[in-house]
Amino acid sequence: MVEKHIKSLLYDHDCVIIPDFGGLIARYVPARINPVKHTFSPPSKKIAFNEKLVLNDGLLISTIAHHDHITKDEAQQRVAEFVHNAKTNLHAEKRFELRDIGVFRYNAERRLVFEYAEAENMLEASFGLPELSARPVKVEEPAVLRTLIKERQQELVEERQPLRRRIKRAYNVAAGLALAGLSVSAFYFLSLQADYNLSSLNPMTVFTAAGYTAPATVEPNRYTQDYVPFTEEDRLSYYATILPEASQNANEVANAYEPSGASVALGAAADDFVTEEVAEETVGAVEDVEPEAPAHIIYTKDGRSYIISGGYARLENAEQYRTTLMEQGHEEVDILLPQPGSRLFRVALADFPTAEEAQVALNTYREKFGETLWVLNN
């Protein structure tokens, strides 16, 4: 009976004190949205418990005496019996249930704890308001509108296709004309330069420029019926008639181009020409020799331990960082090429024969260059 009166009082009051037990406090809870269940809950009251509110304010006893038509002493006796039963259940079963309101328990520190059971909404302003479920709203277009949109999209696609085809055809024609024009222009300029190039590459122009004339010998016609090839003696005698005159004409050409007017023999000129070719080949061979690798770049494993300051993906960046360190006064800075499995060019501040010596010196370098330094065993 006492439980029924406590529940009815919680509808109208924010605090109901149970003498020698504690006080039930009702507080306002606004409307809530559950993002998981997609529900809307109306405003309500949530009941809490404070075991320090044990002073009798007379509310509960007066209500019981008025509704049950008994005296206040009898009502107080009923409340005392209710509190005694509640404490007995707590000591025996470690829990006491206040029907439709909540459950009382003892925690690990032997303090009374109350768990509110949300059975009914005790807020009068929310009487009759249920919990609402929210469903996603799907906006659907009318069937006629969907049909019109689909037809319009097909028309746009059909209009775009001929335009794209015309643009592609015009592009192909323009590219073909441009390629043909470039080809014709290239052949035209090559035809203009053909005579000059061929004449500059012809070695016989040296003799013809000096007024050289071939000996008056009749060359055999290879297309006649009585044609007989030259014998070895005929070929040697023919060369003997040509070479003296060629040597004389070459001397005249050399005399014409010498500023001092001194004559140079054709044989000497040939020797000089051969000497110049050999010299040019020697110079080219010297130029083909690859320069020695810089001393600060480590190409291979040498078994030493290096203190690494940074790693870079490009050699140019590593060289710039090395230059910066040298400008700061650090003279010995090496660059290690990427090892197998790595693509970084590492910049080393110092190197040591063993890893132990490098680890000992690492702390000294970290005081100057920072804590990011580390030791690499090459």
Rank of each mutant, 00 (worst) to 15 (best):
T39G: 00
V113D: 06
N221R: 12
F114W: 11
I47R: 02
Q339E: 03
Y196F: 12
F352R: 07
A92T: 09
P229G: 03
F96G: 00
T372K: 12
E290Y: 06
V2Y: 00
F40C: 10
I298P: 07
I101G: 03
A256P: 10
Y11L: 13
Y365I: 01
A65R: 05
F114A: 03
A361F: 10
A256S: 15
H38P: 00
P42R: 00
S247N: 09
E74W: 01
P291F: 07
Q225N: 09
E93H: 11
Q77N: 10
F127L: 08
D195F: 02
D288N: 09
E140P: 03
E371Q: 13
Y239H: 01
Q161I: 14
D100H: 11
S199Q: 09
A355C: 00
P259V: 06
F187R: 06
A92I: 11
S305A: 15
E219C: 08
T300E: 10
N121C: 08
R222Y: 07
F49W: 03
A108K: 08
L90G: 03
L236M: 08
V103E: 06
E93A: 07
E280Y: 03
A293D: 12
F127S: 09
L349W: 05
R346S: 02
L192Q: 14
F21Q: 11
V16P: 12
A270I: 04
G370D: 06
I64Q: 05
V274T: 04
A262T: 08
I17Q: 01
R99P: 03
A295H: 13
V173S: 01
R222C: 00
G284V: 09
G284N: 10
L337S: 05
A256I: 06
L349S: 02
Q248A: 07
F82C: 02
Q154A: 13
R105T: 15
R27Y: 08
Y365N: 02
Y299F: 10
Q359I: 02
H69K: 15
E327L: 13
Y238Q: 15
K52C: 00
T324C: 03
N197T: 14
V83H: 05
E140T: 08
M1G: 04
A92E: 13
D57T: 11
T354S: 11
S41I: 15
V173N: 06
L9D: 11
L148P: 04
S8D: 10
E292M: 10
I335Y: 07
F82K: 08
E357F: 05
T208F: 04
V286A: 15
V289W: 05
D302P: 03
V83T: 13
T63I: 04
E93W: 09
A265M: 05
R152E: 06
D334P: 11
I64S: 01
A180Q: 13
I298Q: 14
F207P: 05
N34Y: 07
N377S: 07
E155R: 13
N56D: 15
E357H: 06
F40W: 05
V274E: 14
Y312T: 02
G310H: 08
Y11F: 14
Y212F: 14
P353N: 12
A293K: 11
L325F: 04
N255R: 15
G128K: 02
